[in-house]
Amino acid sequence: MDLVVSYDKATDKFNAWDLAKAQITPEYVEKFKVKAEIAYDRDGAKMEATGKGFTLSLVFDENECKVAIKLSMFLKPLKGKVLEAVENKLKKTI
């Protein structure tokens, strides 16, 4: 895992998943000028966004969200900025 965000607003992993799903939409991802497909798995309490050169995984546990990101060699220099943006969004949301 590259990042762990504890819940401030959510009461459990499914509540956190619901809150995050409302914010992490294809329209939100388009703001970053990338195309991605988002797979939502509420029963497994996880989400995965996949696009050209990257995969972003969110796994919701009872008290925290674990974030993992895989980037192509071309995108690796942006890892810190991407994780910062994801962290800020999650902290505001969950």
Rank of each mutant, 00 (worst) to 15 (best):
K9P: 02
F14Q: 14
L56D: 04
P77I: 05
E37K: 14
E30I: 01
K31A: 04
A20Q: 05
T55K: 14
K33T: 06
E62A: 15
V59G: 09
Y7R: 02
L83H: 07
N63Q: 12
K21H: 09
P77A: 03
F32I: 04
L3G: 06
V5Y: 01
Y7N: 06
A22M: 08
L3F: 11
A85E: 09
T93Y: 03
C65F: 07
A39D: 14
E30R: 09
L90F: 14
V67N: 08
F54R: 06
Q23H: 10
I94L: 15
A45D: 04
L3T: 03
T93H: 07
K89R: 12
I38F: 08
D41W: 08
S72Q: 10
G44P: 06
V29S: 00
L90D: 06
V86H: 02
E84R: 13
D2P: 07
V82S: 00
L75F: 13
I24G: 00
G44M: 07
E48S: 05
G51R: 11
E48F: 01
S72H: 06
D8P: 00
T50E: 10
L78T: 10
K89P: 00
I69W: 04
N63K: 15
E84I: 01
P77V: 02
T55Q: 09
D8K: 14
A85V: 00
D8F: 04
T50A: 04
V86D: 08
A16H: 03
R42P: 10
D2H: 12
I69M: 11
E30C: 01
L71T: 10
K9S: 05
I38K: 06
I69K: 10
K13E: 14
I24M: 12
K52I: 05
T93Q: 05
L58Q: 01
T11W: 00
E62W: 02
D41S: 14
F60K: 06
V4G: 01
D2E: 11
